[in-house]
């Protein structure tokens, strides 16, 4: 990939599919490493991607994970079909979680996911419609690195 070209890839994530949890994020991480992105960018993208992937697996029926890499940014859009979020401000609060006991036993659901996505993104947009689903848009700026 070089110059003004961009790269796009879609992934399907199934809710409840804990055995494959993290596979999409690992693939994205490896891809960015191959493209020559910096350690710092790869790390932020990997963490944000994993949090978003886990959210779909834990809470939604299914979700589409859309990765877009352009010369200046990495954009990840995750749109799920699920219960949605009633109160986004509350969900963004560290420590707030609606995770089940099962999710917690797997080491997740501490209420750090959405705040952590925000922390690792340069731009983060979350919208949700109760009983329909949630959409996350995470952008990490790269300023042209990794494309030479």
């Amino acid at each position: 990939m070089r110059g003004d070209t961009s790269f796009q890839k879609d992934f399907l994530i199934m809710g409840g599919d804990f055995t494959r949890a993290g596979k999409v994020s690992c693939e994205i991480k490896n891809l960015l490493k191959e493209l020559g992105h910096s350690f710092h960018v790869v790390r932020r993208v990997a963490i944000a991607a994993y949090e978003a992937e886990m959210n779909v697996i834990m809470y939604a029926r299914k979700g589409r994970f859309d990765l877009l890499i352009t010369p200046n940014k990495i954009q990840m859009t995750v749109e799920d079909e699920g219960p949605g979020i009633d109160d986004i401000d509350l969900a963004m609060r560290e420590g707030y979680s609606t995770a089940t006991k099962e999710m917690r036993e797997l080491g997740f659901g501490a209420g750090m996911g959405l705040p952590n996505i925000k922390k690792n993104s340069d731009r983060f947009i979350i919208t949700s419609e109760p009983d329909r689903g949630t959409r996350l848009e995470m952008t990490i700026l790269t300023n042209g690195e990794g494309l030479q």
Binding site: F18, T19, A21, G22, S25, C26, F39, R43, I47, Y50, E51, L106, G107, F108, G109, A110, G111, M112, G113, P115, N116, K119
Partner: peptide, 26 residues
């Protein structure tokens, strides 16, 4: 708590945990 690992760990660290599933590794 893998949520805390994702939120707070510094790169280059060793992780001590009692969680032995694939999520710890990933």
């Amino acid at each position: 708590l893998m949520s805390d690992v994702l939120a707070f760990i510094s790169p280059g660290s060793v992780l001590l945990t009692g969680l032995v599933n694939s999520h710890a590794v990933r």
